[in-house]
Design a protein around this nucleic acid. Structure first.
Lengths: 221, 221
DNA sequence: TCAGAATACGATTAAAGATTCGCATTCCAC
DNA sequence: GTGGAATGCGAATCTTTAATCGTATTCTGA
């Protein structure tokens, strides 16, 4: 790493002409292939450029550094996932426990389908994880889960809801990562998702009951 | 990496004299410090040697390559953890659900206490994870959990037990990693461990009941 | 005390890889 | 068409780092 001064992960010129937008798209596609084939360790700018049929110089026109490419891949992935989860968890036509079940199944399936890519991206996480933009993604997910809890645990205190949201988020994401890193076959992943769903559902049900009991007790006294 | 031919991760000369054993010990201690201070990325043989007050050449007398040092750290850590878990999960004087609860609390606490070290070691995992010796550790843990399930789910089929064991192991290890990577404070970790314990306990209880029901039903017919 | 084994050293080698920079080419607004 | 902007190029630069090897030092058993 010569002459490096910690350039911002996202700042650099935007493509204006059609050919350059295409070039950026080519780079991102190639980056996925390189990551899958060569792993996080073998992910080099030279290889990405070559796989994209582009020169390194061109690559650096639109990405300030290697991390920026990885961050971009991760951001795209996360945007997609977050969108799906938002749709599922926010659907008022479905009962909250069912929403959670569907969200888990969808999430685990998508983690598993692109297992090689996801787990390589995860291996590379130390390179982009510290960027504030990346931390913001975590916060987005947390907010989503917290607002879901308002519907799933209407009787609970804000503190309880926050803890439950963090806990469910923690379990989802960490088990999801583990699933992708093991690249398990489809049927088993559904079984895992179902079991985790049962666990989380049971846990939330327990919270609902205990807060209802507490409410009843205080109403009676 | 010049002239490298994928040397075995553990093979190299053993220390015979006192000074060389001390040297190896110094290197391992220093390696922990370097890993914590500089992270997986800044973990270089030169830095480790310097922190240990030793020359690189000496380091390479006892470790075939950088990975071997990391593997050794991970192996030591895992040996310790596995020992504790074996003791807790195998204690016949305690009811299985209680054993699981204690195991979780102990495991999560230890993950959290050395959070910086554990999570840096985890970041470096891509470097040593592929070694067969490392894969063997996973298998050890799996075996432990399976034999625990013989006591926790006596009525269940072997297949059910195997799935339950893998699932519980998956949740424990993945959530454990997440906990260490977030470096949460003590009290919250206990709350998380308790909640996960509740979930897993509830899940296992569900399995017990359904297999008991099934046994009852088939006895009645 | 002495020979040979073990240990320690660290400058040196060999690469690999990130990023730059000057120049060539293409595009677009006028 | 033309001038400047945008784009594209890739050899060259500059670091970092893993790993070695010839030499110096220390130990140990006889």
């Amino acid at each position: 790493m010569p002459r490096s001064k910690k350039a911002n992960i996202s700042a650099r010129k935007q493509p204006r002409q059609a050919r350059s937008s295409q070039l950026v798209a080519d780079i991102l596609e190639a980056a996925v292939r390189v990551l899958v084939r060569n792993g996080a360790h073998g992910f080099t700018t030279a290889r990405v450029a070559e796989a994209a049929g582009v020169s390194v110089g061109s690559l650096y026109q639109y990405f300030p550094n290697k991390e920026a490419i990885l961050f971009r891949l991760q951001a795209n992935e996360w945007g997609q996932t977050l969108g799906e989860l938002r749709r599922i968890l926010g659907d008022p036509a479905t009962a909250p426990p069912e929403r959670l079940r569907v969200a888990l199944q969808t999430f685990f399936r998508s983690e598993c389908e692109e297992a090689a890519f996801r787990s390589a991206l995860e291996d590379a996480a130390p390179l982009y994880r510290e960027a504030p933009e990346s931390r913001a993604h975590v916060e987005e997910g947390r907010q989503l889960m917290r607002s879901f809890m308002k519907e799933a645990l209407p009787g609970a205190s804000a503190k309880q809801r926050a803890f439950a949201a963090d806990l469910v988020g923690l379990v989802m994401s960490s088990v999801g990562k583990a699933v992708s890193s093991q690249g398990r076959p489809g049927a088993e992943v559904d079984a895992i998702a179902a079991a985790i769903g049962e666990m989380l559902g049971g846990y939330l049900r327990g919270l609902t009951h205990s807060s209802r009991d507490r409410a009843n007790r205080s109403a009676a006294s």
